[in-house]
Design a protein around this nucleic acid. Structure first.
Lengths: 219, 219
DNA sequence: CACTTTTAAACGGTATACAATATGAAGCAG
DNA sequence: CTGCTTCATATTGTATACCGTTTAAAAGTG
């Protein structure tokens, strides 16, 4: 039984702890997340666990059966496809809205790229990649869009976590590709029109959509 | 104190009851929705009310303060703009995905248009308009997209509800415009390419974005 | 051995209880 | 009268308890 947290709410503690378990594979896909059991393990009562499970369902990390039992989300190619339809619908729009703001201040994106160059593990590289996109979503000034992105990001982290555990991906090549792509995007934000930036982002996402599933196929 | 429900869960009862209050204006925008008070009024305990409030936050009908108190959402022009950015990002994409399926079976859309012609009140007309769009979102085959639409729909209903109470809108003219626009869309689905259908939907939504706020301005 | 039926444990939905905090009004000082 | 402090109350966060249902394993049956 883990230690209940000192500060912050037990709801946040439960949600963070469950996130870690699910994304890092501590709980197998499809396994039951019973309120009582989780509550005992975390050393809190069922109430905050229950709320955490509902919140995680919204983020696509947990599925509920018809009878109200929570399970670790199982991923299918279908899910991947749906996820990328949403990315393709939302991120280019967000990019268009963000361009003006990013043109004024691109320091966050620059720092992110520098950090990516120095990142040691692929896990960190992919996290920084998601950060790069999140910076854009933050800059677009649409709170609903940002909220939505955060939810999509959860699912993406789930995919990447499982991918990372099931395959050894080459860190170096991937890093270079990402850095190069992000530099290219940043340059577009600085010099091109909004419409072009939207298109570049669209192509960037399409590239990943092609690339990611390939790593899954030959298991 | 209202009657606790016979069938279905108290959570669903609470969420439906709160939806009605908020959308129909039973609770003023900005007013506090205290768990205990609502629970007493509905004749249930705080637990299902609490969960209902969290769910309604996700649908944009309720806002939480930093200290965790729930308030009836207040709408600003900013919210309207954000909402329509999302509609414009999502619905054309959904339309493109749905065209093939709608071409095979457009009966749901046809029935909807017929019902709109017969609808007696503007409230019913606007509800049917949202249904029309929901039929398309259902046909697009992307569960995440549909879920998202349902959440946007909640907010749209909130806007329309308040609009309806603050102004008397002419029913007949609005009805004719909607029927005509929907017929035009349906015809496009039957005869045009996917890309054209996406564009038509985009223009359809843009039209409403222009039209709706006008009704607010001169209060 | 395959397929029901039974049954005890597990689980979720909800109510209630209590503690910690936030809130807003009353009282007080300037 | 204005601004700060005090304090009773309202409200949320969390724990615990209870009940009906679901579940899955054991027992029974063909």
């Amino acid at each position: 039984m883990k230690q209940p947290p000192a500060s912050s709410s037990r709801f946040e503690y439960a949600i963070n702890e469950l996130r870690l378990r699910i994304i890092n594979g501590g709980s197998e896909p499809g396994s039951l997340l019973a309120e009582g059991a989780v509550a005992r393990e975390l050393g809190v009562s069922r109430v905050p666990v229950r709320e955490a499970l509902f919140a995680l369902e919204r983020d696509g990390l947990v599925e509920f059966s018809e009878t109200g039992r929570a399970f670790v989300k199982e991923l299918s190619p279908r899910d991947f496809e749906e996820l990328y339809v949403l990315r393709l619908a939302l991120e280019p729009v967000a990019t268009g809205l963000a361009v003006e703001s990013l043109r004024k201040d691109a320091s966050a994106l620059e720092k992110n790229i520098e950090a990516t160059k120095r990142a040691s593990s692929l896990l960190k590289v992919t996290a920084l990649d998601l950060d790069f996109h999140e910076i854009i979503l933050e800059a677009c000034g649409n709170a609903r869009l940002l909220k939505l992105w955060r939810s999509l990001r959860s699912e993406l982290e789930l995919w990447l976590g499982r991918l990372h555990r099931s395959k050894q991906i080459q860190t170096s090549g991937t890093r270079e590709e990402i850095v190069s792509a992000h530099c290219h995007l940043l340059e577009s934000f600085r010099t091109k029109t909004t419409a072009v930036c939207e298109r570049k982002m669209r192509e960037h996402i399409l590239g990943w959509r092609e690339w990611l599933p390939v790593l899954f196929e030959d298991e």
